[in-house]
Structure formats: structure tokens, C-alpha cells
């Protein structure tokens, strides 16, 4: 496929994405000079990035370039890795989530996450969705019922499962399980939803549904998605961050901007090489 041809495909994908360059955006999360170390190895080097409020931000780049690691610093899931260390800062609404007085549990309630492979609990659909709200102390049946319906509707799953809410979440197909996991994340009403290659284990139709869903969610939530799939980034996101490994194999941010600009008029040679498929 020639460069021009592939660029044209991306442009066409972008044409349907009219609001991509909406002018007024405030910053929801701000990453400043972030470094992430696994022991002595620096996996992410000096990344600074502003995540716009109520927009979809895609992080693209080749395998192992630190995309997921960066994503996991946004809700402090990176803390779970033994011997890991963070330098720099991440602000959520102008407040550091790494400050010593911050409760990591609060951060994760405000910044939810959907994983690469669907990971429902071995519980009923209903209990999967109400897991988070119950932790927050919501116990009244009527409240929980309302949350379940609202979350499953928001995740575009309600019509498919409303008859079988008390069946196991494992009985659903892969795509449905992933939407169940999205509903479960939405049930605690997060402000930001992180998605770590949410469609990479799904077939094209299920992938399409997830992308459509992301589009519906962007009015209410700030979404950050890591993806291998450039078409997906081009189709589904408003902003794109391109990461690449530097000479020390640490992930660096090469370029960040409106998706349209990154895909049609990249400023960096590296970005252009990547999106036109010359490497990666």
C-alpha cells in the first residue's frame, strides 16, 4: 500500500469524525515530565501530555514502547508492580494524584479502567455491575437496580442482557463481556475512563460496537485509549499521542495533537513513518 493510499483511508475515516477539532477543550489530566522505572529500567522517559476533558485521547505506538505503562500511571495501577518507581507528576483537575496525602482508592474511583482482555468477576451480570457501588456503600435494592440499568444502557448492553441479569457474566460472548466490564467501570461514575487495548481480543463486529460506544461516552467522560490499531485511533479518537522507543528502549512521546493533524499532517518524520506503515 502506498503512502498516499493509506493516508487517504485515514482521511476518509476522519471525515465522519466531525467534532474532532472542537475548539474549546479544558485539561482534565496533566502529565508532567513523567518517568516510570521497573527497577533500574526506565520504561517511560520524560513524557508530558495534557489529556483534554470529555474527549477521546488515543495513545498509539509500537509494541513495548510504554503505552500501557503510561496509561497505568494515570490511575496508579503502576504502583502494583514490585520495585516500580514514578518520577514527575500526574495532575487530575490540577491536583497531583501522587501527592502523599492522596488515597489511591479515591484516585481509582475517579479514574476507572477497562483492560485488554475482558475480566468479569465469576458473579452474575448484576453483581458485576454493582461491585463498585457496593464498595461505596450503596446497598438499597432500588438504587442498585437503577445503577445496573443505567450502566448497562450506557455500555450498550442492556437490551442484550436485561432478561438474564442474574446469570453469570462468564456466559456472555467476549464482546459482551468487555461491554460488561465497561458497564462495571461506569457504575462508580468515574470522571476518566482508561482503556488498555479494549478491543484487541475481540472480533471486528465487537470492536465496532466498542468504538461506537466510546463515541457515545465522550459527552460525559474523558477517555484515554491505548491501541495498536491505527485505524481505530483514526476512527475513534479526537486527539492522538504517538509514542516511540528511544535509543535506551525507553518510551518517549514523539508527537501529540488533534487526531486529524497527526494522521494527515504529522510534524515529526517518525510519526509519519509509523502511520504510513513504514515501520512498527
Amino acid at each position: 500500500m502506498s503512502t498516499n493510499q493509506s493516508l487517504r483511508i485515514f482521511t476518509r475515516a476522519l471525515a465522519s469524525n466531525e467534532t474532532a477539532d472542537a475548539p474549546t477543550t479544558t485539561v482534565k489530566m496533566r502529565v508532567t515530565n513523567l518517568n516510570f522505572y521497573y527497577g533500574a529500567f526506565r520504561a517511560v522517559a520524560d513524557v508530558s501530555l495534557d489529556v483534554p476533558d470529555r474527549r477521546i485521547t488515543a495513545i498509539i505506538g509500537s509494541s513495548g514502547c510504554g503505552k500501557s505503562t503510561l496509561l497505568r500511571t494515570l490511575n496508579r495501577m503502576g504502583d502494583l508492580v514490585p520495585n516500580a518507581r514514578v518520577e514527575g507528576d500526574v495532575l487530575l483537575d490540577d491536583e497531583s494524584i501522587y501527592a502523599p496525602n492522596v488515597d489511591v482508592v479515591d484516585v481509582r474511583r475517579r479514574v476507572g479502567m477497562v483492560f485488554q482482555r475482558p475480566n468479569p468477576f465469576p458473579k452474575s451480570i448484576y453483581d458485576n455491575v454493582t461491585f463498585g457501588p457496593r464498595l461505596l456503600g450503596v446497598n438499597h435494592r432500588a438504587d442498585l437496580d437503577a445503577i445496573v440499568e443505567k450502566s448497562l444502557r450506557a455500555a450498550a448492553l442492556w437490551d442484550e442482557v436485561k432478561e438474564k441479569l442474574h446469570e453469570s457474566g462468564f456466559a456472555l460472548s467476549g464482546g459482551q463481556q468487555q461491554r460488561l466490564c465497561i458497564a462495571r467501570a461506569l457504575a462508580v461514575e468515574p470522571e476518566v475512563v482508561l482503556m488498555d487495548e479494549p478491543a484487541s481480543a475481540l472480533d471486528p463486529i465487537a470492536t465496532y460496537k466498542i468504538e461506537e460506544l466510546m463515541h457515545q461516552l465522550r459527552d460525559e467522560y474523558t477517555i484515554v485509549i491505548v491501541t495498536h490499531n491505527m485505524q481505530q485511533a483514526a476512527r475513534a479518537s479526537d486527539f492522538t499521542a504517538f509514542m516511540n522507543m528511544n535509543a535506551q528502549r525507553a518510551g518517549t512521546l514523539v508527537e501529540f495533537g488533534p487526531t486529524k493533524e497527526i494522521f494527515t499532517n504529522p510534524h515529526q518524520k517518525e510519526t509519519e513513518d509509523y502511520i504510513t506503515g513504514r515501520f512498527g
Partner: peptide, 9 residues
């Protein structure tokens, strides 16, 4: 991870 990401202790 699913539990922790939902704000579980």
C-alpha cells in the same frame, strides 16, 4: 486488577 481498578482496597 479489576477489583483494584474499581477502587477496592
Amino acid at each position: 486488577e479489576a477489583a483494584l481498578a474499581l477502587g477496592a482496597t
